[in-house]
Amino acid sequence: MDIETVRKISEVARLHLTEDELEQLTSEMDELLGHFKSVQDIKPSKPGHAKESHYMHDLKNAMRDDSVVACDPEQAEAIRNEFTKRDGRYLTAPKSIK
């Protein structure tokens, strides 16, 4: 792990880190990942049939019909309050493309 890799990760992670934070994380991640590397020693019980464990139980996709329900006015108000700018009946979010 080197500081430039950590800087790249921080950009992907949307974390604006200081140089000190980047330096500290470089050494911490190096140590932690060095320890975590041992997972690569675990071999599947049936060679060639490694399964990834994403879910705990065998669940079925649960589908429901779309239905129109009333919007909770308090929830709507809470969302509205997070936006300080308006454009007519729209809420304005910060620019995402330069």
Binding site: V6, I9, R14, L15, H16, L17, T18, E21, L25, L33
Partner: peptide, 21 residues
């Protein structure tokens, strides 16, 4: 990015960084 840096603690950042990597 700046809001996350200002408002999240050290341990949170460490876990986000490892998880992202």
């Amino acid at each position: 990015s700046k809001a996350r840096d200002a408002a999240l603690g050290k341990e949170i950042k460490r876990r986000i960084m490892i998880g992202t990597y």
